[in-house]
Structures are given as C-alpha cells and as structure tokens.
Amino acid sequence: MRVVIAEDLYLLREGLTRLLLAHGIEVAAAVASGPELLAALLAERPDVAVIDVRLPPTLTDEGLRVALEARRQVPELPVLVLSQYVEQLYARELLIDGAGGVGYLLKDRVFSDDQFVDALRTVATGGTVLDPEVVAKLLRRRSAEEPIAALSPREREVLELMAQGRSNAAIAKRLCISEKAVSKHSTSIFAKLDLDPSDDDNRRVLAVLAYLNG
C-alpha cells in the first residue's frame, strides 16, 4: 500500500512516516503544504492519503480543500483527514459525494497505531471511517425527536460502531457478542430506521449517515 502524507509539523510528519513504515506501508511522499499535496496526489496516485486539515499557506482548512479538490480530479481517491478537532460540517463535506473511501479522525487516534492502521486500510479499500466523536454528535443530535429514540441501548452501540466504519466481525469482538447477534441487531436497526439492509460495509455506513444527516 502506498501512502501520501501531508502534515506541516515536522515532528508529526516524521512520526507518521515512521509509524506507517513500521507497519509495512510504503510512504510515497510526505509534504508540508497544500499546493505540494495536490501536486503529490496527482503525480503519485497513492492508495490512500493522510491529510492534516490545517496546512500552509493559508493555515486554515487548506488540507480539507485540497482533499476535496483531489477527489474531484481523481474520483474516489481515498483520503484520511486528520485534525485536532472534528466537525460534523467537515464530515458532511467529505461524505457528500457518496463515493466512500473517506476517513475523518482526530489526531489523537494515531496513538492507537493498530486501530489507526486498520482505519487507513479500511479507507484505502473504499470504506468510510468516522471519528467516534463525530458519530456521537450525529447520534446525540437526532436522539430527542426521531425514530432513533426507538433503538435499544445495545442497538445504539452497534449503530455507533457501524458509523465508525467497523465490520460486523469487529463490532462483535468489541461488544463481546457473537457475529450472529450483531447481524440480528443491525437488521433490527435497519428496520427501525427504514433503511435498505446491505452487507457492504461502506454502503451501510453511508446509508446510516445519509439518514442521520438527512
């Protein structure tokens, strides 16, 4: 797997490069600014890009803009966007094309390198990974008024993990229940939310998000 990294802080850039190398992932380019990133993405065509939201020269949401621009030029180019904070607004902008291959995580998640690399691989294969904090916000927002209130606590847990891009197997492991139970829960969730059940992880996540954001 080939990766392009965009991060303006030298220490973090080097740290990320080393972390990925340690997991046997090839780093095609590590850049420090928005224009360099766009050039690298178009030249290298990596399997996935790890992008910090705030990049020079504007030091605003340059990374996010470049990621969206690159996906416009290279459809379905997988991007994993990292940030010191997460916003539903940005998550929506990343997800709006419905193509998948999108990740949006807090930088803190890098601490758990195994999970981080898992997320990276999910995104590279066209999956969708959202930070638990974004997912929690999404669920909190609608909980008061909508059919989501009809979900049992367990079903809510399953839904949260689903929105984070986890497969049934991963959810089963995390909640210490059988995979069969997970699929039972998810069928029930889809029924309650009136969604089309599907085995495809990405489509599943997008369906949930589309419903929540509706």
């Binding site: 939201v53 705030r54 010191q84 904070y85 916003e87 539903q88 940005y90 927002r141 909980s143 008061a144």
Partner: peptide, 23 residues
C-alpha cells in the same frame, strides 16, 4: 472556534447548528 477562524461566521454558525441537539 477553529471553524470560525478557518471558514468565517457563516460556516461556523452552520457547524454550530449541526452540533445543536435540536433542529
């Protein structure tokens, strides 16, 4: 708020609305 610095008032308020627990 970071969105305010990055995007300005309009997007910051949109983000605020998204985070609010009511419509």
């Amino acid at each position: 708020p970071p969105v305010l610095a990055e995007r300005g008032l309009a997007d910051a308020l949109r983000a605020l609305a998204l985070d609010a627990p009511l419509r």
